[in-house]
Every structure is written in structure tokens, then in C-alpha cells.
Simulated assay, not measured.
Amino acid sequence: MSPEDGTPTAPGPSDDANVRRRRGARLALSGRLQTFAGSTLMLAGVGIGSAAGNVSQGDPARPGLWIALLSAVVCGALGVPLFHRGRRARVHGDRLRSATIDSFETLARQRYVLYLRPFDLDAQTAELPTEPPSRWWASDFHLSRKTHEEQMMRWFAGLGPSIAVGRPGEPLPLTGARRGYLGDGEWKEVVGALIARAHVVLLAVGPKPGTVWEFTEALRTTEPGRLVLLVCHRPEPYERFRHMVAGEYERRARTEPGPWPAPPRLPDYPALRHPGRRSWDYGLKGVITFDPDWKATFTRFDPTQPLVPITLIINGIQRRGMRPVRARLAELPARSRATG
């Protein structure tokens, strides 16, 4: 959120906000209906194909077998694109009807979860998952209807509304955390105050100067238990982030008033247990949490653990990893409003 990342500016809607929201509501509803219809057709195709195989008992001369198989293929050919089109329509509709934060000052007495990230991560987290857990077309049915950012924010639901600073120049806010926008030159002052008052700070790591500054600011003004680092990158960007943090922390500790305690050591990026095994990767690849002495723990969501990439097993890995994180965050006391 620094000038290096792009200076935030308020977007200017081209049409009336109420009209846009009504259009978004209609589009979101249409998207959900298309997704449901596509899912139904895919399941019908699987059912018809399975029933045809059972009835024919492998005999291609059985009457109706080829008609049933053709029907199954048609159901799949119609259902898959309808399903994916509905997912995209739902997301765009929700973006059209998203309300923004007029002023971050209104949050001064509210409890909220602050989501910080390098702006270039938005292109990745705004996407819907596209890789199904297995290779056949019916497995598309298991793909999430939520974007990667929506899925990340759901892990922290119940702790307070998720808020974020919007990317400069974006025509519509993204789904997930609710966006507000900043003017030129004010980002450090406003973001610093947001960090100091947040009930929980979620920071998606990345090798950007603004993100590195936000991390060092959180170390200075936030209790260890309130800071969660989100790792959405592979090891190389994470390693660059660690290197940049060390230099920025040393610079700020030398030139700015403290207190500046010893910085925490960020853990190494955990290796996959079975790197040669086929995996279904996560948008959120892991989280880093801190104990009261700023000792860091990297919880990696390893998609190579299950032998069979079944959706319930894969999602269970992430769910088990997040359970202790959510439990600790749920026990946090309300933050003193004298802070920051």
C-alpha cells in the first residue's frame, strides 16, 4: 500500500450506486441458479452413465446403451460450462453490489479484522479455484463457489468484519474483505492507525516495500497473538520477503522512536512431505502465528498428504490446520481503544 505498490485513490462509479447494486443482485442470483443447474446436469450425466453401464452389463448390443451414454455426454457438455459461467456471474454480481467504507475513521470504535496484502496479490486471490481434485469432468462439481480471498476470510468469520484498503484504480471492489480507499500520501498514517486498533491483523506476505513496512509496523504496535501472516506464495517470494524484513526492521529501529524489541525469526518454508505425488494446491498455502514471546510457527497446508485427492480429505487438511489458530484468536480479549 505504499507508493511503490500504487497510491490508493477513490474509484469513481460510472452509474448510480443503487442501480449498480440492483444489477449486481440480479446477476448474483442468476449466477447461483446457473451454478445449481450446471451441477444438476453434471450429476445427471454421471447417474445416467453409471445406470447405462449397470443395465448393459458391458454388452454394447444392449438397446438404449448408446442413447444413454450420449445423453450422459450431452449433460456433461452442457453442465460444465453452465456451472463455470454461473460461478463467474455470481462473483461479478457480488462485486457490483459490494458496499465500500466511506471513511476508515468510522471504524475507530468498532471491532474489525484488518486484511493487508501486496496489491499485486489481488489478481490471484480474486480468482475462483479452477483445478478440480481429480481429472474427470464431473469433479468440477466439487470446486468452490468462492474466490480465494472469500475462502481466506471465512476462516476468520466471527472475529469481526474483515476490512481492507482497496487497490488503486480498481473499477469495482473485490469480494471478501470490505474495501475502503485512501487519498494520495496518507497511506502510512491511516494504515498504521488501522493496525494499532485492529482486533486481528491478517497480513499476506510478499516482497513489496509497503507490505514489509506494514509487517514491521505490526511488530511495533500489535500484540503477538493478534498477528497472523497469510502465505499465498511459493517459497521464492517468501524468502525475498524475509530478507527485506530484516533490512527494513534494522532501518526503522535505527531511525525511528521505539520501542523496537528484537525482531522475530520467521520460519523456513516447510517442504512438501511427498513432492513427487500429485497434489491439488491451495490458494492459501499456510499461515504463520506467534506465541507471546514472538516465536513464530509456520502451519503448512500440505496437499500431497492424501493418497487420493478427494475433496473432503483435502479440505480436512486445511480445516485441521486452522482449528487451533481460530481457537486462539477466538480467546483474544477486546483491544484497548487507547492503543494507537
Rank of each mutant, 00 (worst) to 15 (best):
W260R: 02
G276I: 09
P309M: 14
L230P: 10
P264M: 01
L114P: 02
S98A: 15
L307Y: 14
T222F: 11
G180V: 08
R22Q: 09
T40L: 15
W136R: 09
G79D: 06
V113H: 08
S56Y: 04
A330E: 14
D59N: 15
P235R: 04
E223A: 12
P306L: 12
A126T: 07
L272A: 00
E131Y: 12
C75H: 04
T311P: 03
D122H: 11
E217W: 14
G53M: 12
A44K: 00
G158P: 13
G316T: 09
G49Q: 07
A77E: 10
G31L: 01
W187P: 00
T100F: 00
A177F: 00
G79C: 02
R20T: 08
I288W: 08
R135W: 15
D291T: 01
Y115E: 08
K146C: 11
L194V: 00
V73Y: 03
V191A: 05
E239H: 13
P132S: 06
D184M: 14
F290E: 06
G192E: 09
R278C: 05
A246T: 06
G247R: 09
A193T: 14
D94I: 06
S336D: 15
M42G: 01
E217Q: 14
F156I: 01
P161V: 07
I163P: 07
L33N: 12
A327R: 15
G58S: 06
A177E: 05
P303D: 06
F290H: 04
K146Q: 13
P60D: 12
A338M: 09
A61F: 13
S144W: 01
P235S: 02
D59V: 01
F215T: 09
P133E: 11
A271D: 15
A196W: 00
W280K: 09
L96Q: 09
A327H: 14
V205S: 00
R167V: 15
R111N: 10
A296F: 13
V165Q: 07
I163N: 03
E248H: 03
Q305L: 15
R278V: 10
V231C: 03
L219W: 08
V201E: 03
T297Q: 13
G160N: 12
L230N: 03
G166W: 08
P118R: 02
G192Y: 00
D5F: 11
D15M: 14
P270V: 00
D16N: 14
S56N: 04
R265F: 07
V165H: 08
R97L: 01
G276C: 07
V308Y: 15
P306A: 12
G225V: 10
V91E: 03
E331F: 09
H274T: 09
G340S: 01
A52V: 07
E150V: 07
G258V: 06
F83C: 11
L121K: 02
P263R: 01
A253D: 03
E105G: 05
V245N: 05
A196L: 02
Y282P: 05
A52H: 07
T147P: 06
K295G: 13
